[in-house]
Structure formats: C-alpha cells, structure tokens
Amino acid sequence: MSIVVQKDNLSDGAIIELLKSHLEQMYLHSPPESVHALKPDKLIDPTITFWSARVNGVLAGCGALKEVSPVLGEIKSMKTSQGFLRMGIARAVLKAILGEAQKRKYREVKLETGSSKHFAPAIALYQQYGFEPCRPFANYSEDPHSLFFTKKL
C-alpha cells in the first residue's frame, strides 16, 4: 500500500466531508463545549495548512498545521477515514506536518485532543513522536475532556 501525503487546498471537498463526520463523532464522545475540532466554515484560513493522505487516489486521512505564532504551530484536524484505520495513515500525516513545522523553524508544536478512551490511539501516536503533556495554550482552558500536548523542535 502506497500512502501519498501532500498539501491540500480543500477544493475537491473530500477533506471537508471527512471533517464533517469527524465533528459528528466528536459530539458523540465529548460535550459540545469541549469539542475543538474545526467547523467547516473555519477550514479556509490563511494560518492553516492542510494535508491529505490518499491511497490509490482515495482520501485516507488528513491533518492540518495552524500557525499560532512565528515560533509555535498547532496540529489540528487529524483524522483517518474509517476504512483506513491502523494502516499508518495518521503516522504519515503527522510526519509531514512535523517536517513542515521544522521548515518553518517553529520551536514548538502543540495540540489538543480528547481525554476519553476513544482518543487512546491518537494519544499513543503523539507520545511515540515525543509529545509530552502540557498546560492549555492559545485560547484553550482547563477541561476534563481535553488533553494538551507539546513537542519541542
């Protein structure tokens, strides 16, 4: 299986549809005030760069990097399509995002994810890549349904 990860301008609508289903799932696992996934109307933003992962032209997953400041990036919208779970899609997208963060000379990359067991695979992946727990950042606040991670670059 060959995974092709590349920057994506969202023009074909596939990522938007994947993230709509992602948002629906987040509301199943977290109360509304604890859902921090990007809503479709917030996806087009000059501070956010998206990547798509495709297998044989089919969208397998996505992820995004938001510039919080010239030295800090935030990983957003990490999602793997249901039919491609546990195939290395998220790992491939995360590698691409971290590579871009290094090119941009960020000193640090942070992220927010859920705290329930549903998020355990994502948390394990982030920890494998050296992310460590941290305090809330940017516009986030303490929330029992959220975990925050950071990685120094």
Rank of each mutant, 00 (worst) to 15 (best):
M1G: 14
M1A: 13
V5A: 03
V5G: 03
K7N: 05
D8K: 01
L10W: 13
S11M: 12
D12T: 05
G13P: 02
I15Y: 07
I15P: 04
I16H: 02
I16L: 01
E17M: 07
L19R: 01
K20W: 10
K20N: 09
L23N: 09
L23S: 06
L23Y: 11
E24D: 15
E24V: 15
Q25W: 11
Y27A: 01
H29G: 02
P31I: 13
P32Y: 09
H36F: 11
A37T: 10
L38D: 12
D41K: 03
D41H: 10
K42C: 13
K42F: 13
I44V: 15
I44A: 14
T47G: 04
T47H: 12
F50V: 01
A53M: 05
N56I: 00
G57E: 11
G57C: 07
G63A: 14
L65K: 03
V68T: 07
S69T: 09
S69A: 06
P70E: 04
L72M: 02
I75T: 09
K76S: 05
S77I: 02
M78Q: 09
K79A: 14
S81W: 13
F84L: 06
R86S: 11
R91Q: 15
R91D: 15
V93L: 08
A96C: 11
I97H: 11
I97L: 14
I97D: 12
L98D: 12
G99L: 08
E100T: 03
E100Q: 07
A101L: 13
R104M: 13
Y106F: 09
K110P: 01
G114R: 04
S115R: 05
S115P: 06
S116V: 04
K117W: 08
P121W: 12
P121E: 09
A122F: 07
A122W: 04
A124L: 07
Q127W: 08
Q127P: 02
F131H: 02
E132D: 12
P133E: 11
C134Q: 06
R135I: 11
R135K: 15
F137M: 00
A138R: 08
E142F: 01
L147D: 02
F148N: 00
F149Y: 15
T150C: 13
T150P: 09
K152D: 14
L153M: 08
